[in-house]
């Protein structure tokens, strides 16, 4: 009989462990997260270039596509932002409503209480380079007035997500050693590095950069003009020079066309900007926040020839008929 009691206790203990553990985990997690305020839990996923409100669990990372967070707040509503990262270090920055930049290290949790004051539709950004998909890591943050929030259909129409480019796998042609034509290579590099997320589709420009003195990010389709190239002939000869890899400074003594030295000064400044980036951006309101979008340094990822191919590509697509 005594032995049977031990056996029963053993069964009880095992059952307590098997059933109790998940219950305790769920219960503790529930009470731990329980606050009076609404909690907005954002997880950064570098491989997909999103901040997401979905749960990111160990089992998910390989299979699941995470939904880009479309954050909806109501003016004056106290919320708690909880940031975490599933892989690498990200930064959350929504400058227009005064949130961030918050550096979010992988696996750590950052709870930020926040009460929105301004209303409107804004963008949040990741401002520390987090990999191939970094430039795509943006989304909407909408602050409704309390009247808007009360009217469901109105709120839905305001908070509708903007269509944003999604991150794709790197172009195979760029890495597998295919010998791409010079201009094609420039185009693919432009696409592959996500340059268009700031400089606009096919370099048309126009992406809004809050508190930037020029408001929008410069386009690239008029690069030929910015480089002070006179006409199509000059453009074609320059593309050839860039393609053959001639050192441009050596041509100063024997310029291929009259305005060459003006071009050369511009070329130098632009290629240096691509190479070293422009981490400091002129602010419209010098006392206000830092603009979220800055030109990163590409020297580590792009060779001199790569940079030249991008410049040549944009010279080549300039529409000379418009002049």
């Amino acid at each position: 009989m005594k032995k049977n009691i031990k056996e029963i206790i053993a069964w009880a203990l095992v059952l307590v462990i098997l059933v109790g553990t998940p219950i305790i985990i769920m219960y503790y997690s529930h009470t731990n997260n329980h606050t009076q305020k609404r909690m907005i839990h954002l997880t950064g996923v570098a491989s997909q270039g999103v901040w997401t409100e979905d749960e990111v669990e160990a089992a998910d990372l390989t299979f699941k596509t995470f939904k880009r967070a479309n954050i909806v707040l109501t003016q004056g509503e106290e919320v708690i932002f909880r940031f975490t990262s599933a892989d690498v270090t990200h930064t959350f920055y929504a400058p227009e409503i005064g949130l961030g930049p918050i550096v979010v290290e992988a696996g750590h949790y950052y709870d930020i209480p926040f009460t929105p004051k301004l209303t409107g539709k804004f963008t949040y950004y990741c401002t520390v380079f987090c990999g191939h998909c970094h430039n795509f890591m943006r989304g909407n943050i909408v602050v409704l007035t309390s009247e808007q929030a009360a009217n469901r259909s109105l709120a839905a129409s305001i908070t509708m997500d903007t269509i944003r480019p999604t991150c794709c796998a790197p172009y195979r042609e760029l890495t597998d050693g295919t010998n791409l034509p010079f201009l094609k290579r420039g185009k693919l590099l432009f696409l592959d590095n996500g340059c268009y997320t700031c400089h606009g589709d096919s370099g048309k420009g126009g992406v809004y950069n809050p508190n930037y003195v020029n408001r929008t990010i410069p386009d690239l389709i008029t690069l030929a003009k910015k480089l002070k190239i006179g006409d199509k002939q000059e453009a074609d000869s320059l593309i050839k020079i860039l393609e053959t890899g001639t050192e441009l400074d050596k041509l100063n003594d024997n310029p291929p066309f009259a305005s060459y030295c003006r071009f050369y000064a511009q070329y130098n400044s632009i290629s240096t900007k691509i190479k070293d980036g422009a981490p400091i951006v002129l602010k419209a309101d010098s006392l206000s926040f830092n603009p979220p979008l800055t030109m990163p340094s590409w020297s580590a990822n792009l060779s001199k020839r790569d940079i030249n191919s991008i410049i040549a590509y944009f010279i080549s697509i300039y529409n000379w008929d418009n002049d």
Partner: peptide, 14 residues
């Protein structure tokens, strides 16, 4: 085993 499925995907936090 539970943590490996529902826990954080970040290895050094799991």
């Amino acid at each position: 085993i539970l943590a490996g499925i529902i826990g954080s995907p970040v290895g050094n936090r799991n």
